[in-house]
């Protein structure tokens, strides 16, 4: 596969490490959320046959975490964003 890195352009998927569902960005606050919320956050994921937003890490590159929108059936990649931008857009700060 080839991932179009927002900064570095087309890069071979071999340079990346895969993590999983981009929902991992939405970590609950440990001081207010309980075990149930963290359990859902960590273990309950959708497993779609189709569009999937997922985290990839450019380990053999610039160390950016990316959110890649990929079709799990065809492997077509329709969008690649910096995970930091996605996190900010979802209201994450400090």
């Amino acid at each position: 596969m080839i991932i179009y890195h927002p900064i570095l352009g087309p890069r071979d998927a071999q340079e990346f490490v895969y993590l999983g569902d981009a929902g991992l960005i939405d970590r609950p606050d440990g001081m207010t959320a309980g075990v149930k919320a963290f359990h859902d956050y960590l273990y309950n994921r959708d497993n779609p046959a189709g569009e999937h937003r997922e985290l990839w890490y450019h380990e053999q590159g610039d160390r950016s975490w990316l959110v890649v929108t990929r079709d799990t059936v065809t492997h077509e990649i329709t969008k690649v964003e910096l995970a930091r931008d996605v996190a900010r857009a979802r209201g994450r700060a400090k």
Partner: peptide
């Protein structure tokens, strides 16, 4: 060494991007 660094980058970029 490698996986901790990867994890710290995840925390920095994905969880607390304004730190």
């Amino acid at each position: 060494a490698v996986t901790v660094f990867r994890h710290l980058e995840f925390c920095r970029q994905c969880l607390w991007p304004e730190m």
